[in-house]
Design a protein around this nucleic acid. Structure first.
Lengths: 203, 203
DNA sequence: GAATCAAGCGGACGCAAGTCCGCTTTAAGC
DNA sequence: GCTTAAAGCGGACTTGCGTCCGCTTGATTC
């Protein structure tokens, strides 16, 4: 008896995975990663992934209901890594909340940078509605919100500020589509985005 | 000899529309508006629109390459209205640039509010990449940018601020998907969004 | 090690998007 | 008003997503 991750990354109680299922999952992820790197997310069909993984389309779809969630699964490891890094920053007693926040936004930018193709996936990655409902988004927003509240508590921020809204708004420029547009279409550098974003942190 | 609008709203020189084409265009827009209002953008297929407008699918697609651009065409009038209103605000000599900016953001919020269904269209409206390349977005960003620069010129804003970036970032929370999420999923009021947004204007 | 049955599998199928190309209509020139 | 070529038309077709449901397989129990 163990824990499993459902397709949106939530942990779900349940018996452990059947061995054939586990084998197929590994094959799917391996094949998908390969094809995505080789030709780009947008140029690979679910059909092809299932064929190359020697698995039926139904099997692929049951585990990963769409290409976006398959990309998410590939992002699982990098995401955990980001979260570990951030936890570490949050624990540093020498940093004020505002500094922690800037640091956090910085790490997010680098995360975007490292994983932009999987995150964006030629319009075919996780659709925005799903993204905003995804636990990873809640985690980001919760982190920002916590830091803003902490700053208010320490009188480093106007207590009348609608921190709930500001948390959402600070993350908005990092929405994948916009980030991609800035980086790949307009050619803005990641550093400039980082800096601009930090300049928006209130206080 | 006259002017015509291409499917992304740009004016394009060319002979005036053939009469049959004009008739079909009117019928398509009329039918689409009706169906969208009746059942919601997401529940209507292009196929059905073409059938009900008594027009071939090819015809529909040549004029409106996808559902999003069809929605845009329906938003044409409201958009012009918004632009007229904004021009008026920008002309008022009694307002400081920062006040004009707040006013502008306010109007944008009300525009979103009035047209959310066509703008969002159950994930099937204009895809984000097209939206950011659309002249309507350029207009918004240009307006914000102009006001920020004016504020810098008048020493009402730190001259080291990356106004280019800030213009993008201020508009980011108004991206349709996020706005829709806040309004329809989280239930945040339009007024709260307006206020929150204004609080982010630097200076 | 046989029986059981839920979990897993996979390909045929349905659906809507978007393309293609031969046919029709319009309106401009004579 | 006839000719003509360019603009417009429209439905058959292709493609890829996602579903459905009868079959198979693996773990568990006795």
């Amino acid at each position: 008896m163990g824990w499993r991750l459902d397709h949106s990354g939530r942990e779900v109680p349940g018996g452990s995975e059947r061995s054939d299922a586990a084998r197929n999952r590994r094959r799917i992820l391996e094949v998908a990663r390969g094809l995505f790197e080789e030709r780009g997310v947008g140029e690979v069909t679910m059909e092809e992934i299932s064929r190359r993984a020697a698995v039926g389309k139904g099997t692929l779809y049951r585990r990963y209901p769409n290409k976006g969630l398959l990309c998410q699964a590939l992002l699982d490891e990098p995401t955990r890594h980001l979260q570990r890094e951030v936890m570490e920053v949050l624990g540093r007693p020498d940093l004020a909340p505002r500094e922690k926040l800037c640091e956090f936004l910085d790490r997010l930018v680098w995360f975007m940078e490292d994983n932009l193709d999987l995150l964006y996936g030629g319009h075919q990655a996780l659709p925005p509605a799903d993204r905003l409902a995804h636990p990873a988004y809640d985690w980001r927003r919760g982190t920002v919100l916590g830091l803003l509240r902490e700053a208010v508590r320490r009188d480093e921020l106007d207590p009348d500020l609608d921190v709930e809204y500001v948390a959402t708004a600070l993350l908005a420029p990092l929405e994948v589509e916009l980030y991609h547009h800035q980086r790949r279409v307009l050619g803005i550098s990641a550093g400039r985005i980082s800096a601009g974003l930090r300049s928006l942190v209130p206080g």
